[in-house]
Amino acid sequence: MEQVDLVENVAFNLINQAVVYLPEDVKKALKRAYDEETSKIGKRQLKIILDNIALAEKEKVPLCQDTGIAKFYIRAGAQVKKLDEIEREILRAMQRATRDIPLRPNAVNPFTQKNSGDNTGRFTPSFDWEIVPGDNLELTVMIKGGGSENFGAIGMLSPSQGILGIKKFVIDTVVKAGAQPCPPTILGVAIGGGTEIATKLAKKALLRPLDKPNSDPSIAKLEKEIFEVTNMTGIGPMGMGGKTTILGVHIDYAHRHPATFPVAVALNCWAARRATAKIGTEGKVEYLNHNLF
């Protein structure tokens, strides 16, 4: 059996895991937020969130009705065979997941307004490819709802605005989003690289677990500072006031052109759904952030 023959099943399992079970790091952060929240309504909202997570796990149903648009991040070893068939297998998994889990059909043609009915369509789901040395095939799915996606932003700052400019832009983005993206949210922030690289890196940064700060201490420090100031805004859980607005900040960067200073912010709601699996040779499959299979 070749690795590609396992892709449909593994991708289906990943989607299933992601929509029903939140990763441990997200659950832990929500529990901590609940313990520390001082606003009465805010604490109540966090309690409802935790109850909902437990109920979805128990009944094995999607924890949020917006089962989003799926994004697949593929890290393929250069030795993996039949790379050209992987996307097709994932599309099949997407259609099966929509029917069997089920998921809400969310792929709408922007011109005809027609819903495809099976969560596939032009560039849907999306694929991000990395070709790496070796023969492992790693698949990650991110399930991203529309509520938080609507408030992603990119700012083309002037280079002289520097770090202070980044902080201000992020605070503005979080305040503008307010209650809408279902706070507490997670922020992916990326600097440099032009508009497309910055937006892509910002979103990809959301894959990093909440308990893993940036390995570069100066960036980790900025992550912590942004975390602290955005939580001082008082937006609170569900925008009803409180001290928990942001669960974590992940920063990434690319080198920039001397004349540009792009800053992209991607927001993820508390329902930060992702799942990863590694398909080795000889059919060995490891599920990396959930131990359910």
């Binding site: 909202q45 409802i48 109850d51 909902n52 109920l55 009944e59 999607p62 949020c64 009705q65």
Partner: peptide
């Protein structure tokens, strides 16, 4: 009335 965003399992129940 605000219902907690994402609380879909509770809603369905």
């Amino acid at each position: 009335c605000a219902f907690t965003g994402g609380a879909a399992a509770l809603g369905a129940k």
